[in-house]
Design a protein around this nucleic acid. Structure first.
Lengths: 131, 131
DNA sequence: ATAATAGGTGACTAATCAGTCACTTGTCAA
DNA sequence: TTGACAAGTGACTGATTAGTCACCTATTAT
């Protein structure tokens, strides 16, 4: 599949940082990005290449510079893959579910610090199957 | 940051497949998941552990079985990180723009025709900062 | 109790990936 | 046209990670 490149690209913290910067303001050049990064320019270039091949950024030439733009479409696809309309409200609200889990779940030692994590956001275990 | 575990967990295709299955119907046991996977049960267990530590799944004990549930919150957070309310419409509308851009890639530094042509899915470069 | 089944652990090997190096190409301004 | 600067390439090294092995623990039913 092609989604593999997207996830592999997102797996690196440096690349996520690059995306953050482009999210804040895009149209930056390689040198501009590299100057903030405590890394060789070549390393940054490699990361940008990975991001581009994943479709997460888009490059445009301008004279002897190359500008970089964020492309959020693949991110949206990730979202749509595991969050459907039905569960979206629940996920963004996510209150009361933690309580629900805790009352039905007695002994599970590794799972108790569930602030945002550790809650079955889709469904209570009683419901199985259909959707 | 803790998001690193989430992205690393998502970087593996087997783990994404596990999430897909749990998305389709969760509350499955380790053995059930492993039986469909052409991999050792131990390998699957390791993947499930990674997913759990990333907060992407939640386990619940039921007798001598352990049931697995999908947790979509981290996915939602990924979405919110690079897609804001303002650009959401634009992003969900456009697909395959990258290719289109590469075709029209000639030297065109002007940035204001973002509509269908130019690309930057978020914003024309002139806008900086705020969100 | 005991056998059967579900889940779990620590150590090892093979493959993948991040980051660097020296060197090349292309564009702008005197 | 020359010198300066921006971007790009191919090969190398060190570290991380996927998958497997043999062995261990806990719960249910006979």
């Amino acid at each position: 599949m092609d989604d593999d490149r997207v996830f592999k690209a997102l797996a690196d913290p440096t690349r996520r940082l690059l995306l953050d910067w482009l999210f804040e303001r895009d149209g930056r050049t390689l040198s501009e990005l590299a100057s903030e990064l405590e890394m060789t320019r070549f390393g940054v270039m490699k990361h940008l290449r990975v991001l581009e091949e994943a479709g997460l950024i888009v490059k445009r030439r301008s004279g002897r510079e190359k500008l970089h733009f964020l492309n959020a479409v693949p991110i949206r696809l990730i979202h749509d893959r595991w969050i459907d309309k039905y569960t979206e409200r629940r996920v963004s609200a996510l209150t009361g579910l933690k309580r629900h889990l805790e009352e039905t779940n007695a002994d599970e030692p590794d799972q108790h610090e569930a602030g945002l994590r550790g809650v079955p956001l889709r469904q209570a275990p009683s419901r199985s199957g259909m959707r």
